[in-house]
Every structure is written in structure tokens, then in C-alpha cells.
């Protein structure tokens, strides 16, 4: 219990300092705030125009697609707030930032995880939330207590899956000193695979996106659960159990890969 309180006090103060740091440069935040809604608008508009012409994609109507996209967006927003530093893991490596973390009597992965809170990401969450609520209206989502609880754990689990995928792949920076290409690749892959229902892809790809990189658990299975659509997979449990469970498993794996990379860390000159 004391240990938990200790970690929480360090985490909250470290995150607070990181936010204060960004508020020193407000213009950057404002300009990004203006950009982000446009980025999301293109996604939802794409789905809208596609369904206008095709009536449905893989059997999914526009409201259902919007719901899928909404869960994807919201989990992306939360990930962008709390763990966007994964994208820039190579900077931490090249600037020797892990030196300092290694000198402190705390888990390095923990220090890395709490070293940054992205204020700009709050806009991602807000936009994601509005897209999601809009889609909930479209599909006539029933706001019962149990549905809300299921939704919250699913979205948190989905954010954890996204963040862990980035940790795992960006840890390549410990060996190669670069990860911006991997970051871009993963971002593209995640956007394309969470925008459409998994069923439009060939079976092999579906299996890969379920078993190898568990993208399907981010929004596809949970949307199927809520909307009563057949996912063509038999899950052992409800999405509200599966998504957070897969989130925790990938998170544990991510830590292991990160620590493996850290052992390979060579610091930087001087």
C-alpha cells in the first residue's frame, strides 16, 4: 500500500511537471488544437461518403461504422495523452535520457511512462469523445449502468493495447537508435485496421490482427459485442473481459521487450 502511494506521488508530480513544461509554450498547443479536429473529420467523412455510395462496408452501415470508429478514436486519444512518448523513444535513447532514469531508485519503465503527459492529446480525446457520442446516438446505444462500465473498461483496455503495441515496436530504437519509421508505420497500420470492420480483410490477415498484433481487440470485437454483429470469431468471454485482459497481457509483454532493449542501452557520449 505504501509502495503504491509512493509510486502514485512520483507519477502525479512528474506528470504535473511535464504539463507545466508544455504550458510554457502555449502557442504550440493552440495551433495543434486547431489541427486535430480536421484530422478526425477526414476519417469520419471518408466513412460517410463510402457508405453513401456503397450502402455498407462489409455489411456494416454508416452508424455501425461510426461506432467502430468512435471506440477506435477515443482509445487513440487516451493513448496519445498518456503514452505518446513511445513514438519518440529514439530521442530518449539518443539524448541519453535513460542515464538519469537508471540513476534513480525506481523502475525505468515506470519513469519513462510517467515522464510525459501530452496536453495536445486532450484535444484528441475531446474530438474522439464527440465522434463516439454522435455514433452512440446513431446506433441508439442504451445507456444502462452495466453498458457504461463495460464501455469504460473496453476503452481503457483498448488504449492499453495501442500503447503497448507502440512500446513493443518502438523499443527497436534501443538497437537501431531510430524509430520514427516504425512509429509512422504503426500509426498507419492502426488507423487502417481500426477504421473498417475486420471482416473485409482476408481470413489470414484477420487471424494475424487477432493473434499476433491484437488490433481486433481495440474496437472490432467490442463493437460486434455491443451491436450484436457476428465477428466470425468465437471469443472465450465478453469483450468487456477480453479487451482489458489482452491489454494487460500486451502491457506485460511490452515491459519485457522494453527491459530487454534497456539492457542493450549504450548511453551516449561524454
Amino acid at each position: 500500500m505504501d509502495k503504491l502511494r509512493y509510486y502514485l506521488s512520483v507519477a502525479s508530480y512528474s506528470m504535473k511537471l511535464s504539463m507545466k513544461k508544455q504550458l510554457e509554450y502555449p502557442m504550440e498547443i493552440i495551433s495543434c488544437f486547431a489541427m486535430i479536429p480536421m484530422m478526425y473529420a477526414t476519417g469520419i467523412l471518408l466513412l460517410y461518403f463510402l457508405t453513401q455510395n456503397l450502402k455498407s462496408i462489409g455489411g456494416w452501415t454508416f452508424p455501425q461504422l461510426a461506432f467502430l470508429y468512435g471506440i477506435g478514436d477515443l482509445s487513440h486519444g487516451i493513448m496519445v495523452v498518456f503514452s505518446v512518448q513511445n513514438w519518440f523513444l529514439d530521442r530518449y535513447v539518443n539524448r541519453g535520457e535513460f542515464d538519469r532514469m537508471l540513476l534513480r531508485p525506481l523502475n525505468v519503465f515506470f519513469q519513462f511512462s510517467v515522464s510525459y503527459v501530452n496536453i495536445i492529446g486532450i484535444m484528441d480525446v475531446l474530438v474522439g469523445l464527440s465522434v463516439f457520442i454522435y455514433s452512440c446516438v446513431l446506433v441508439k446505444f442504451s445507456w444502462t449502468f452495466s453498458n457504461i462500465v463495460r464501455l469504460v473498461v473496453i476503452i481503457l483496455g483498448a488504449a492499453l493495447i495501442r500503447s503497448s503495441i507502440f512500446t513493443i515496436f518502438c523499443s527497436v530504437a534501443f538497437w537501431t537508435k531510430r524509430c520514427s519509421a516504425v512509429t509512422a508505420l504503426m500509426n498507419d497500420m492502426l488507423e487502417r485496421t481500426t477504421l473498417y470492420p475486420m471482416t473485409i480483410y482476408p481470413r489470414l490477415l484477420q487471424l494475424m490482427l487477432t493473434l499476433i498484433i491484437p488490433v481486433a481487440f481495440i474496437s472490432f470485437f467490442s463493437s460486434c459485442c455491443f451491436l450484436g454483429i457476428d465477428s466470425s470469431f468465437r471469443l472465450p468471454a465478453d469483450a468487456a473481459v477480453m479487451t482489458p485482459a489482452i491489454g494487460i497481457i500486451t502491457f506485460i509483454l511490452a515491459q519485457a521487450v522494453f527491459n530487454w532493449g534497456l539492457r542493450n542501452y549504450e548511453s551516449s557520449g561524454s
Binding site: V10, Y13, S14, L17, K20, K21, E24, R104, P105, L106
Partner: peptide, 19 residues
């Protein structure tokens, strides 16, 4: 090891919590 953009005292406050 100090936070470049913040007051010196704030870096000390973080260390106080870490140690």
C-alpha cells in the same frame, strides 16, 4: 537533471518524492 523550463525548486520537489 533539472527541468529546463521550470523553476529550480520544482525539480527539487520531484527529487524529494523520488527519494
Amino acid at each position: 537533471q533539472l527541468y529546463w523550463d521550470l523553476r529550480l525548486g520544482e525539480s527539487f520537489e520531484l527529487l524529494k518524492r523520488i527519494y
